[in-house]
Design a protein around this nucleic acid. Structure first.
Lengths: 222, 222
DNA sequence: CCGTTAACGGGACTCTTGTTCCGTTAAGAT
DNA sequence: ATCTTAACGGAACAAGAGTCCCGTTAACGG
């Protein structure tokens, strides 16, 4: 993500050397300094470009210019915008913020809802998330990366719900993942299908609705 | 939508004649027979193409070939894929199915949830909806058309909730639109962020959760 | 039925996107 | 320090998307 402090051993996705001869060595090539620097610069440029022109307007040639990298390099290493998005999502998944621990289900869910709403409402982050969602509907690899990304995020917050179950606030067979998803869902739906703003009121309503439904047992397993 | 039985007076969106001279007549040109036929053929072709290659892979030249229409015509009348999607969405908005009237809030909401789930799970309809959502995040005109589309759909089902309020099943100041949206939201969220199937169980859970939250007063106004 | 002109359609043209070729640079091993 | 070669980058090339020009077709008004 960030240019310099990227993990230097970050491996490119499924990439073959220049001439992918049929009998080449299996894997693990040369991920050191320069390669990592190029990757970081391109991913950073991709973020900028996504915010400005969205996924549909993404052009690998333009990316190369922004990242001050050879056009050929970008085409060779990622090949398609979808593959690049998958790589970017893998990078994003490593930056989840830690969940809240207020001790109250209501406040934990509200904290989550407000975080999501703030993220989606933020000009840069919001545009980035929309672009990434778009990419996932266009490219299979990006879709898988996106699913992993949300799995990581939801798993981070699920313990809030599990703790509430433990405390007896919710039915014992409540599915924590479903409750966390129920908090985000209305916010994403609103962003996509209406032009209404994602303010704190909307966030709190989403959290409270999820909590009420969970208490009523709407998210019990099987 | 369908090739032949399209309304013959369907107007193209904001379109100027071949040479948009500054002092031309205001509007309402010549929407008769041929024009309407071309529009229907192109919109139909657009649906097919969206299902096959998605919004990102949409190419106006290819559309012209599919619709057996001059390439120039497509570029002139719509100009961009976004404008074409806006036109397609306006067309789709006229085809809402009527809401359920079971007399029970629970069954009405379940009927709505199952309809949404079936639509999104359908190979053709689902792909079309995903493509349209993508278009809305890429193009301002398409976004507005999409908002109108969902407003129409939600308004069709809102009376189910209003009737339940009338019957005393829900708090009197419940916002019917928000309840209807709460039914769809988890289904869209699931489609986008996980690979899980949209089956009847998921639909029923979405409906029941929305109902429980509504009963608890989570969707009261102000 | 006839005239006017909005709208259509073919073909040439341009500019952008993506690929290929090959020489250059620097990572990693000895 | 030196060698090997993975990975980078420039330039030429091919393919395709979008635009322009201008002749043709068919709505709509009289």
């Amino acid at each position: 993500m960030t240019p310099e402090n990227a993990t230097p051993d970050a491996p490119a996705p499924g990439t073959a050397p220049d001439a992918p001869a049929p009998g080449t060595a299996p894997d693990a090539q040369r991920p050191g300094g320069r390669t990592a620097r190029v990757r970081a610069a391109v991913l950073r440029a991709a973020e900028d470009a996504l915010v400005e022109v969205g996924f549909a307007g993404l052009d690998l040639g333009d990316l190369a210019r922004r990242a001050e990298v050879g056009r050929t390099t970008v085409y060779r290493r990622w090949g398609s915008t979808g593959a690049l998005m998958a790589d970017l999502l893998a990078d994003m998944a490593e930056q989840s913020l830690p969940r809240a621990r207020t001790g109250s289900l209501r406040d934990d869910l509200r904290a989550n809802a407000r975080l999501v709403a703030r993220t989606l409402a933020d000009p840069r982050q919001g545009a980035l998330f929309r672009a990434v969602l778009v990419a996932a509907t266009c490219d299979e690899a990006a879709a898988e990366a996106l699913h992993r990304f949300y799995l990581v995020r939801v798993a981070e917050w699920a313990p809030c719900v599990a703790d509430a179950v433990e405390r007896g606030e919710l039915p014992p067979d409540t599915d924590p993942f479903e409750v966390v998803r129920a908090v985000s869902a209305p916010l994403y739906y609103r962003m996509l299908t209406t032009g209404d703003p994602l303010d704190e009121a909307a966030a709190d309503r989403a959290a409270d609705a999820a909590e009420a439904a969970a208490r009523a047992g709407a998210y019990r397993r099987a």
